[in-house]
Write a protein that binds this DNA or RNA. Structure first.
Lengths: 213, 213
DNA sequence: GTAGTATACGGAGGGTCCCTCCGTTTTGCA
DNA sequence: TGCAAAACGGAGGGACCCTCCGTATACTAC
């Protein structure tokens, strides 16, 4: 069955064809609006508000995301997408250790965003190991890439892997549960300084004290 | 202000007097109905259903328990009450090691009951350390009393305290997340056999194999 | 360019649940 | 027994959920 379908590229009429352009656009709008809404008002925000803020009807929201969970999942996947993308962009546009620092701070912001969805995200991650593995794996890969670049440049110590880094930063963000995440940013800055310390290159060659902004 | 009020025991008119009999009765009915409803249908069960099953109006429910959380809290306190009461009853009516075994199995049932409320109970316990300490403390005391009686009788080993026991039994119940709690009961039975083993008295004097029904 | 059709949109509307408010009933005290 | 105070109960307005279907739009074929 799977074999025969793989060979069949003849006509694309009855098979699944690309979604319409407006469908793609609206789906993206919904994900952005949902991310904002979950971050600002928690997981219980009315879906009708999300639809309105996205500029679409409630019916459109339900067609794309039949359940609140499916919307949360899409938002989370999107967050991970952005995080991975940014890792690459940072690596191309700045020195590795700065890229790492910026990315870690970006991660703090993203965790803050996700806090509102947490009550829905947690059961989702625990009941859906597939989803959990995928997202965690991709985030870990991004972290590892940044670390390795720093190690190769001699500005980041080599005895920390991506998984460790994510756990550490995530842990800091979760423990500083408070209102504003200024404390998280400071602590993550400290962590970064630790990563720089003991690297092959000069331990405090770049800037002394805190990391990035 | 507070001083002057403390001296005023003269008439009990304006001060707090006992609630009316029907108020007490209805409050109890609501707690029982809520416990059943949370266990059977989860934390999201409509409050109107609970009121109906308790045989009171929705207004009465809201007067006694202004929020869903306050109802959950009352149910939980009540569960702990029952658990502590039963510990004493068991100790009076049967040999200590049997009392302990029965109580452990009762605990399994109570955890199963609480599972439905868990999503509301968890935030309650974490944000309200007072409540958390009180309930945990009382449950631990009950467990300790049972253990000590067994130790004094020479049928239970002495190197386990109430806190350990609760954590172990609770952990077993939580990890066997499945439908029916038959597995929990079996595992807790095993745990009990472990408690009997190594006691001062005969290790397997009572019944060999599994513990109670 | 145009016609035709699969696809997507949007919001009205019915249903559920929440919670308040207030007229009625019951209880306990004098 | 009389009478407040306390408690009861449920109607009703509001919020939110989700479905359904008539309308609008984007692709495809010619």
């Amino acid at each position: 069955m799977a074999e025969s379908e793989a060979i069949e590229p003849a006509d694309s009429v009855s098979t699944d064809r690309r979604p319409r352009a407006d469908a793609i656009r609206n789906r993206d709008l919904l994900i952005v609006a949902a991310a904002e809404a979950f971050a600002a008002r928690g997981a219980d925000v009315p879906l009708e508000d999300i639809a309105r803020n996205a500029g679409v009807g409630i019916g459109t929201l339900y067609r794309h995301f039949p359940t609140r969970e499916s919307l949360v999942e899409a938002v989370y996947r999107h967050e991970i997408d952005v995080l991975c993308e940014r890792a690459d962009q940072f690596l191309e546009s700045m020195p590795p250790e700065q890229a790492l620092a910026e990315w870690m701070q970006l991660f703090v912001v993203h965790v803050a965003t996700k806090r509102g969805m947490l009550s829905l995200l947690k059961p989702l991650l625990s009941t859906n190991p597939n989803f959990s593995d995928q997202t965690r794996g991709r985030a870990t890969a991004a972290a590892s890439k940044l670390l390795e670049a720093g190690v190769a440049a001699g500005t980041i110590r080599a005895d920390v892997d991506g998984g460790d880094l994510l756990r550490a930063v995530g842990g800091i963000c979760m423990s500083t549960d408070q209102e504003r995440s200024a404390a998280s940013e400071r602590l993550v800055g400290l962590l970064f300084d630790g990563l720089r310390h003991g690297a092959a290159g000069s331990p405090s060659a770049t800037q002394p004290g805190n990391a990035s902004v």
